[in-house]
Write a protein that binds this DNA or RNA. Structure first.
Lengths: 113, 113
DNA sequence: TTTGACCGTTGACTATAGTCCACGGTTTAT
DNA sequence: ATAAACCGTGGACTATAGTCAACGGTCAAA
């Protein structure tokens, strides 16, 4: 499908799709037409972008998404490493929460003065 | 004092001091020498930079620091607005904490599967 | 046929808080 | 006198996740 169709199906802008493409987050992109240089994006990119959006909801960065997508491409039966990635991310978020809590408590002490 | 001295007293790099200077966070900067173009940074900048570091500890941005410093410059007897700025920042941090907690809980649900 | 909708590429810009480099001038110590 | 240490300016670069605009080519419908 062409980029406009992919954009419509995923509700992600063309610019963003091209941005992902430059970051090597997408696959199966070809230029099947000889008379123009339009690209064709394979169907699987719909799912890839959905996965990206899903992972972003858990504050995964795009480069982390790339790692996960690459692993998914490499092994057909996955799930194991994915779980450990989630656990790592969970730890990071716990850490961020506790740091914010410290800042919050310090601020509360200030405001209450 | 010259920038090197200010850097030594505040433990902030010259580059950072110049960066602050460009953002109009510092005051009383002159070029008192006719034979060179060295600048002189007034003593008060030591305190200004200490205030910046203090506010940054509570995740105030530099532009927020500027607002607070400007208010401090404008009114000799301050403290009131400062407290409301702290309260606003506190609210923001509370919000960030609750957002992170939501993400955390969603992640926990995933990992426990 | 011509207009509007689409496509591709390139590059600049957003915000944040700096860091680092090059270039050239000055001051201080040896 | 000369080297090291200092000073100022300008610009580029870091990371993140896009967004926007310009320029030019192409496709579809009226």
């Amino acid at each position: 499908m062409k980029i406009g169709e992919l954009s419509k199906q995923t509700k992600v802008s063309r610019d963003t799709i091209r941005f992902y493409e430059n970051k090597d987050l997408l696959t199966d992109i070809s230029r099947p037409y000889e008379w123009n240089n339009y690209k064709d994006y394979g169907e699987n990119n719909v799912k890839r972008i959905q996965i990206i959006k899903y992972l972003q909801r858990f504050s995964f960065t795009l480069s982390e998404c790339k790692v996960l997508l690459d692993e998914r491409d490499a092994s057909p039966n996955n799930c194991v490493d994915k779980n450990s990635a989630f656990k790592k991310k969970l730890e990071l978020i716990e850490k961020q929460i506790s740091e914010l809590k410290q800042t919050r408590d310090a601020l509360i002490a200030l405001v209450e003065e």
